[in-house]
Amino acid sequence: MMESSAAVYVAFIVTLSVWIGIFVYLWRIDAQARELQRRLDRQPESQQRSTPSATLHVQQRAPSLDQQAEELIKQG
């Protein structure tokens, strides 16, 4: 230990700080990933449609442009 210069201590502090930052970042990402997966697994697929369903159902029911075109051709 005695042979290490002051620069080594600075490098040590910097490296340790970087590692602590990376570790905290990984820890948070990991927690969020697990939480997301838990929510996805818990929620049945049908309930996933809660927010966008109204809009999307309307979109599904509305005939597409192709369907409308086919309908017009049939009607002559």
């Binding site: 230990m1 080594v8 201590y9 040590f12 490296t15 340790l16 590692w19 570790f23 820890w27």
Partner: peptide, 21 residues
């Protein structure tokens, strides 16, 4: 996961302050 954090911190400590030049 906590062990990884502490372990790597220990490695950094040893890298700079334990092993010889």
């Amino acid at each position: 996961k906590l062990l990884i954090g502490v372990w790597m911190a220990g490695v950094i400590f040893a890298m700079f302050l334990i092993i010889p030049q």
